[in-house]
């Protein structure tokens, strides 16, 4: 099968190569638009130089349902599209949770919730200590935020003013006990700059990711349609 892939419109078909599903499943993927805007317009990453020490780092902390992630990586040249057909088989580099040791361009292995943001804090601290100008962007889910480890990281990133650190919370209202006052409030009270935007609006996401926030880490809450069902 020869396919010329070039952009956002190709993502549903690429996702379908993994899920075997029709296109509505791809559209329903909560992270799809956030991932696209980051890789298409925000992150300074290069598939030819995946180990560049000055590359931006994207950490997919919410590692489950990574099909949209793999699809975006394929469009951007980090994966061959035909490799998506091997998804979740024994010899594949692409599993139900991503593994950085297997896929160049994947910055962390994730799946257990609440690990990406603490790692991101250490990564941002380490890059700052070495004078590297790159950004660290961590994607978490609103339910993932229930893990206490995130709050240790939110507190410290705010107090230390890690302004090269960005967290994007894909909020599909899946936290069982909710976030009274909103997700963004947890970051604001710890000194983060932040904004809540429509997680399907590419221009709004781009504006949120590229606003100035000197001296403060940045939290972008990307609100998408509420999750319709719960995984078992």
């Amino acid at each position: 099968m020869t396919t010329v892939i070039s952009g956002y419109a190709d993502l549903p078909e690429l996702i379908g190569r993994m899920t075997g599903d029709e296109k509505h499943a791809a559209v329903a993927t909560s992270t799809l638009d956030v991932l696209w805007v980051l890789y298409d317009r925000v992150l300074r990453v290069d598939p030819d130089r995946p180990d560049d020490p000055d590359r931006d780092r994207f950490l997919l902390s919410k590692g489950h349902a990574p099909m949209a992630y793999y699809a975006v990586l394929a469009v951007k040249g980090f994966l061959r599209p035909d490799e998506l057909d091997t998804w979740a088989t024994f010899d594949s580099r692409l599993g139900h949770h991503p593994d950085r040791a297997l896929v160049p361009g994947v910055e962390i292995g994730s799946g257990s919730l609440g690990h990406g943001l603490p790692i991101g804090v250490g990564l941002a601290l380490g890059l700052r200590a070495q004078g590297r100008p790159c950004r660290v962007v961590v994607l978490v889910g609103d339910a993932e935020l229930e893990e206490g480890s995130n709050h240790e990281a939110i507190q410290v990133a705010g107090r230390l003013g890690l302004d090269r650190l960005t967290v994007v919370v894909v909020d599909n209202a899946s936290a069982s006990l909710g976030w009274p006052g909103g997700v963004a409030d947890r970051f604001a009270r710890e000194g983060w700059a932040g904004t809540t935007v429509n997680g399907r609006d590419h221009d709004a996401l781009y504006t949120a990711f590229t606003r100035d926030h000197p001296g403060h880490p940045l939290a972008v809450v990307a609100a998408v349609e509420p999750k319709e069902y719960r995984h078992p």
Binding site: L117, G122, L125, G126, A153, Q155, V156
Partner: peptide, 26 residues
Amino acid sequence: PDRVLNLGIREQLLVGAGGGLALSGL
């Protein structure tokens, strides 16, 4: 101050940030 970091009484972050420091090349 950039390389001696006291994170307070936050041990999950202690180890997680340690992994992040290693990923940064330190």
